[in-house]
Amino acid sequence: MLMRKDDRDILDRFIKNRKEGIRMLFDRYYRPLVLYAGTLISDDTMAEDLVQEFFVRLWEDDYLERIRSKALSSYLFSSVRNSCYTYLHKNDVLRARVDYMSVDVAADSAALLSQEIVDRVNAVIARMPEQTGRVLNCVLMRDMKYQDTADELQVSLNTVKTLMRNGMRVLREELRGEQELIMLFIVIASPEVTQE
């Protein structure tokens, strides 16, 4: 799990002024946590609800006073993952995704998001050929199946596959540079994770 340097400031602030600290944490992590939760449970409203509840718990309880800044991000994403799995289990919904390896790339990617990266990705997509952008929009933003995407855009399934590949290659190229940049100002956190 990766850590950004502003986590220290958030925890310092939380100890001095709880409300301001929670607000800072919210500004920094609310969107990433909701987006991450949304990939674990495919119900965006529920994802928002779970994350909001989590923020209320953080506000009311003392967890954040005891946590080390290096582990903050891990802690947040693990807790949200637990809430999501609990929710899924309770409702007896089959888990849609399986972890292929120990590193949770979805959580890492969410933790590393910033307005700057978001703007950059969206700019890259905007520059893509129109139809490629539409395919990415259907599959990535609207979580549509390939066949539904093909139907909506009135193209063949193979066209969707090809355009998806083209689009993702451009995106990967763009993010390869981005990743090296990110590595300059993050540190790899030590493996221990404080769990709830």
Binding site: Y30, R31, E48, S109, L112, N122, L140, M141, R176
Partner: peptide
């Protein structure tokens, strides 16, 4: 690498859909 690009792309295009100010009020 593909996975990272996938999620970063997915989250970026969905970013604006996550409404913050109402959510803060809800919290």
């Amino acid at each position: 690498e593909v996975e990272r690009a996938w999620y970063t792309g997915k989250y970026s295009v969905k970013w604006r859909n996550v409404e913050e100010s109402a959510a803060w009020q809800a919290v």
